[in-house]
């Protein structure tokens, strides 16, 4: 029996943040075989690099109004990717908007993963009344259509990068909580958790130091997919006018500004649209790649 039980465990240890070199290289090899995930990772790295460095390399400031060059199409004048109705440089705005959107995406992911992991871990560990109360609350929040929840929350707060991050995180933590709850509930009855209890470890210690490291793989996957979701959600709210407020650009509010000119200046919508698509699909590909590399299904065994 022990021999059979060994193989899932070998994979389970890929879940560790610092697994043995052998396991790490195995997971890495599986990830590298996933072409789309590699592509996604490259795109994400490039996006982060260009949004961080790019604005310094461009001649125009993202808020600089150049009235003589309004609605300039891409590759047809001084503005490489064209200019908007106020003559602002589209490329500069795209990159600055990328900073905002990616920041919101990562920050919301970090926050929602943290909250989701804590709620899920407590619910899964204690179970019983605590577990039921927490998970039913999760279900209740999940029942709201995300967009309405998002807009309802957004209507109450003054929009800023911080508040949008909080709002997006508030609508994205539930799935992490569910994943973690299931994992912890299964891990809680494993012998090593009981052994830790026998050694006099506190509940907090068992949860944080023994169980969560074993659930790392699904948490990482969920977190990656959450970045994509957060970027998309930020674009939604900003597009609907409740998000990042002009003149600060975000990919979402660039789309909103482009609406009325869809017929006459389509590049205003197409370019930020491409940016959102690139970012979201890349994160999704990386998430898929990680899922295969860390094989979360076998983890639960």
């Amino acid at each position: 029996m022990s021999d059979v039980a060994d193989s899932p465990r070998e994979i389970a240890r890929a879940a560790d943040e610092a697994p043995s070199r052998r396991a790490r290289s195995r997971a890495l090899r599986r990830f590298m075989r996933h072409r789309l995930a590699i592509l996604g990772l490259v795109v994400i790295v490039l996006l982060v690099f260009f949004t961080a460095v790019g604005p310094h390399l461009i001649a125009f400031d993202d808020l600089h109004i150049d009235v003589r060059n309004r609605f300039q199409p891409p590759f047809a004048g001084p503005h490489i990717l064209g200019s908007d109705p106020l003559g602002r440089d589209q490329l500069a705005r795209l990159l600055m908007a990328g900073r905002v959107s990616l920041t919101v995406g990562f920050a919301a992911m970090a926050l929602s993963t943290l909250v989701g992991t804590l709620v899920g871990a407590v619910a899964g560990y204690y179970g019983g009344l605590v577990g039921v109360a927490l998970m039913r609350f999760v279900d209740a929040v999940l029942c709201f259509p995300t967009i309405f929840l998002l807009l309802a929350l957004a209507a109450f707060v003054t929009p800023s990068v911080v508040s949008i991050t909080l709002i997006v995180a508030a609508t994205a933590w539930m799935e992490v909580a569910r994943v973690v709850e299931g994992q912890i509930r299964a891990l809680r009855d494993r012998d090593f958790a009981i052994a830790a209890e026998v050694l006099g470890a506190s509940d907090l210690h068992i949860m944080l130091r023994e169980l969560i490291p074993n659930a790392m793989a699904p948490i990482v996957v969920a977190a990656t997919l959450n970045v994509a979701r957060a970027i998309l959600l930020e674009s939604y709210v900003s597009f609907l006018g409740y998000g990042i407020q002009p003149p600060t650009p975000s990919w979402g509010n660039m789309l909103e500004n482009a609406q009325e000119y869809l017929g006459t200046a389509p590049w205003l919508a197409i370019i930020p649209g491409i940016a959102i698509t690139l970012a979201v699909t890349s994160f999704n590909f990386v998430g898929d790649g990680l899922r295969d590399a860390l094989d979360t299904r076998l983890d639960i065994a």
């Binding site: 039980a5 060994d6 012998d191 090593f192 052994a195 209890e197 026998v198 050694l199 023994e210 074993n214």
Partner: peptide, 23 residues
Amino acid sequence: RAIRGNRISMIFQEPMTSLNPVK
């Protein structure tokens, strides 16, 4: 909890699963 592992300890049948696989 102060007694467990400190003054009374326990070992189990299944050494294969009683250790945390990721540490």
